[in-house]
């Protein structure tokens, strides 16, 4: 098997269509993610019911045509609460990813590009962050910062910093030692030009793909912390706390925890499928 010249298809529009043809699962996942993002942006389009005040007479109704996810102990429509809770959960997850991406990539970029003792010191630091179980690290940050959705998001982001730092560093090292970077230096390009024109663009792809893959884990972590009660304060709807509320009615109202939890699982699954599809695309691209 000797090396054959890889003639990749030109990078044009039909790429998305090709993805749909070769990976129908990715297409379904894309639809789920888009739907849930639409919930987050325009909840009013998907449900007319009030997520905050309920009809006490309608409490703990099982799912039916009027209440797709049933109602809770105060007679509030659970589908409405799930849809309206999306925004907070998704924003928290994006904030967490943002924190991890910015801080982690920064650390990784500096470590990989400067090398030497700076690299050593930063990498030992990430070793330590990896030694503390992620959830415990988040909980320690929550203890120090206090409760609330934004603080939970930051705490979750901090726990993912090390992962991003490592991936960014390894990408920077890979690119920095690539022959084309040496060629650029010989061509007379300065350090900054090399960093901006070669290293960053080539290192960014895998890091962004990691962000897509990590998004699922981050959503789970945010909702776990909310479930434990450190996130949104009642009556604000949020995915994790919705499941937590239902816990007390487990014996009498199976839908209360089950259906909002199912939405979390579906979203995380869809994000994961998409993330992996993107990673694979990125790999065949090169």
């Amino acid at each position: 098997m000797s090396r054959t010249p890889t003639r990749a298809a030109p990078h044009t529009l039909p790429r998305g269509l090709a993805l749909a043809r070769t990976r129908p699962a990715a297409l379904v996942a894309l639809a789920v993610v888009l739907l849930i993002l639409a919930w987050a942006l325009f909840p009013g389009l998907f449900t007319g019911q009030d997520p905050i005040t309920g009809v006490p007479a309608d409490k703990l109704l099982p799912p039916d045509g009027a209440h797709w996810f049933g109602t809770d102990h105060l007679g509030r429509d659970l589908f409405a609460r799930t849809v309206h809770g999306t925004s907070l959960s998704v924003r928290a997850a994006l904030l967490a990813i943002g924190v991890a991406l910015v801080a982690g990539s920064g650390v990784g970029l500096v470590a990989g590009f400067l090398g030497g003792p700076v690299d050593d010191a930063l990498m030992r630091a990430t070793d330590v962050l990896l030694a503390i179980p992620g959830l415990l690290l988040s909980l320690a940050v929550v203890t120090a910062l206090g409760f609330g959705t934004v603080k939970v998001a930051i705490a979750v982001g901090v726990a993912s910093v090390a992962t991003f730092a490592r991936v960014m560093r390894s990408q920077v090292l890979r690119v920095r030692h690539a022959t084309y970077v040496e060629a650029a230096r010989l061509a007379g390009s300065g350090r900054t030009a090399v960093l901006l024109r070669h290293v960053l663009p080539n290192a960014a792809g895998p890091v962004l793909a990691l962000a897509a893959v990590e998004l699922g884990a981050v959503i789970l972590a945010v909702s776990a912390l909310s479930f434990l009660g450190y996130g949104a304060t009642p009556p604000t709807p949020e995915w994790g706390s919705l499941v937590a509320e239902g816990r007390d009615y487990l014996a009498v109202a199976w839908w209360y925890s089950t259906l909002p939890g199912l939405v979390i699982a579906l979203f995380v699954l869809a994000v994961g499928v998409l993330g992996r599809a993107l990673t694979r695309e990125g790999r065949t691209d090169r």
Binding site: A178, T179, Y180, V181, E182, A183, A184, P201, N202, D285
Partner: peptide
């Protein structure tokens, strides 16, 4: 020549 040209 497979690695000496920036793929982007």
């Amino acid at each position: 020549p497979y690695s000496s040209l920036d793929p982007r």
